[in-house]
């Protein structure tokens, strides 16, 4: 075998390895334009329990089974959280009328009193709870606020959005999920 042939064979093997590595990378679950990847997707949602910062009522994700639940991690010091607050409230108002979906807010790295003030200032009415020790945030793998997870009526994490959400964006994602469930 000539040296040129050997180099060609070895070069071919190297190129095949690179193509295989790229193909594996491409086949990994990728984030869509709006949604982000999370290892929790398709898995049961970690438990959320706490006391509402606004009403003092006890809140639990388990009690919201049967509806789509939007779990939103926020902080008063986070500017994008402020910009998405009105959209979340609009979504909550529309969906809670029909009892099809709801929202639960979880404070991320913030002082409870400041977070409460933020909720009042932004006119939030949906339940939001404190997360001492960031236990819930760690369970969900939150890397920074705002971070939003959508949980289906069976309690499975079906979508994750990193960054601010809009009312129409949430509607679109949930409608898409509803459509998918109906067709399967």
């Amino acid at each position: 075998m000539t040296i040129r042939k050997k180099v060609l064979i070895i070069g071919g093997v190297v190129i095949a390895c690179v193509v295989a590595a790229v193909a594996i990378g491409v086949s990994l679950p990728a984030a869509t334009d709006y949604q982000a990847y999370s290892p929790l997707l398709g898995k049961p949602a970690p438990q959320i329990t706490g006391t509402s910062l606004l009403t003092g009522a006890s809140e639990s994700l388990a009690n919201l089974r049967g509806r789509y639940v939007v779990v939103n991690f926020f902080a008063s010091w986070c500017t994008p959280c402020e910009s998405e607050a009105s959209d979340l409230e609009e979504f909550y108002y529309q969906e809670s009328q029909a009892h099809l979906a709801t929202i639960i807010g979880v404070v991320f790295e913030d002082v409870t009193s400041t977070a409460r003030k933020f909720l009042i200032q932004t006119g939030t009415t949906y339940p939001a709870i404190a997360d001492p020790g960031e236990k819930i945030a760690i369970e969900y793998g939150v890397t920074g606020p705002p971070s939003t997870y959508i949980i289906d009526p069976q309690g499975i994490v079906v979508a994750h959005v990193n960054g601010p959400v809009t009312s129409s964006g949430l509607e679109a994602v949930i409608n898409q999920l509803r459509h998918k469930r109906q067709t399967t």
Partner: peptide, 11 residues
């Protein structure tokens, strides 16, 4: 020294 780092160390 971020609070989340401290919480993760606790976990």
């Amino acid at each position: 020294s971020a609070p989340i780092a401290k919480d993760i160390r606790g976990k």
